Amino acid sequence: SRFGIRVSIKLNNRKILSGIAEIIGEAEKITDITVAIDKLDKIGLEKVNEELASKGIPQKAIEQLQPIILLQGTNEEKLNTLKTVLKDSETGIQGVNELEYILNKLKIVGIRCELELDLTLARGLNYYTGAIIEVKALDVQIGSITGGGRYDNLTGIFGLSGVSGVGISFGADRIFDVLNQLDLYPKDSIQNTQVLFVNFGEKEEAHILPLILKMRQEGISTEIFPESAKMKKQMSYADSNKIPYVAIVGENEINENKITLKDMTSGEQKSLTLEECISILS
C-alpha cells in the first residue's frame, strides 16, 4: 500500500481442495489435480484438462471439476455453492467453514484491497493444511509477490510435533521488479553520499580516514575517492553522482586541523572544523 502497488489477495483452503478431489472420486490424485488447476490462468482451461487426463484422471471426474474450477460470483456466493457441492465431504465442509470464519473476521476489521476466493489457488500442498494465501500485483504480468498459508504439522519433521502456524513470505525480488516496471521505486529510498573527500595521496588519506569514521558515526553518508587521481576527475565523479558536498583536506588543512567544504550547487567554499562540517551536513 505504501509503495503504491495495487494488489489482489487470493484466498483458498487446502481442505476444500481435498474435498473436491474426494467428491469426484480421485482423493489419491489430489496433488496432480491441484498442480494442474493451479496453472489455469497461465495455460487456459483446455490445457489444464489435457494435463488432468495425462495424469490418469477419468473424463467423468474432469467434467465434474469444470463448474468448480470456473466458479464465479462474489466470495459469499462461491462459499454457498461450495457448501452444496461439498456437502458429502466432511473435510471439504470444514475448509468452507474455515474460509467463512476468515471472511467474517475481515468484514469487521476491513481490508484495503481486493480479496478473492480462488479455487484454482493451490501452492505447495505438501505442508499446507488450511488457508492458502497469494498476493498478485494487478498492473503487471508477474507471478505472486507474496504468499503463504496455514500449516499444522510442519514442525513435526524437525521433531517438534503439535505446533501449528501461519507463514507468509514476501518475494522481495518480484516486488522490486514490480516497482521498477511501474516506475514506483521511491527516489529518496537510497541515501546517496552526502560528502566526498578528495584523495591527494597516502599521507592525506591517513588523516582523512578518522574524520570519515566520525562523520559516519553521526549518520552522514561519506566516502573518499579511491585513488589520488586528478582533481578534475574527482570533482567530475562528485558531480555525476550528485554528491552535494566535496571535502578538501590538503597540507594546509592538515596543519590547521580544518576541512575545506565545497557546496557543489553554489560553488561556495568554507574552511571549517570537523564539528562545523558535521553540523552543516546533518
Rank of each mutant, 00 (worst) to 15 (best):
L52I: 10
L52Q: 09
A53I: 02
G56V: 09
G56T: 08
P58I: 08
Q59C: 00
K60H: 15
A61G: 09
A61R: 09
I62G: 07
P67N: 08
P67A: 07
I68Y: 02
I68V: 15
L70Y: 00
L71Q: 13
L71C: 03
G73I: 08
E77G: 12
K78C: 09
L79S: 06
L79F: 06
T81M: 03
K83F: 05
V85M: 12
K87H: 07
K87I: 14
K87T: 05
S89I: 14
E90I: 15
G92R: 07
G92M: 09
N97M: 13
N97T: 12
E98L: 08
E98H: 04
L99D: 07
L99C: 14
Y101I: 00
I102H: 06
N104C: 03
K105N: 15
L106P: 12
K107E: 15
I111A: 09
I111L: 13
R112F: 11
C113M: 01
E114Q: 13
E114T: 15
L115W: 02
L115A: 13
E116A: 07
L117E: 02
L117M: 07
L119C: 02
L119F: 10
L119D: 06
L121S: 08
A122F: 02
A122I: 01
R123K: 13
L125W: 00
L125C: 02
Y128C: 07
T129V: 11
G130D: 11
A131L: 08
V135W: 00
K136Y: 09
A137D: 01
A137Y: 02
L138T: 02
D139E: 10
V140H: 00
Q141R: 15
I142V: 13
I142M: 09
T146P: 04
G147A: 15
G147E: 05
G148K: 05
G148D: 07
G148L: 12
G148H: 11
G148A: 07
G149Y: 03
R150N: 11
L154E: 12
L154F: 12
T155F: 04
G159Y: 10
S161H: 14
S161C: 03
S161A: 14
V163H: 07
V163K: 14
S164D: 10
V166S: 07
I168D: 11
R174L: 01
I175Q: 01
I175L: 06
F176D: 00
D177C: 01
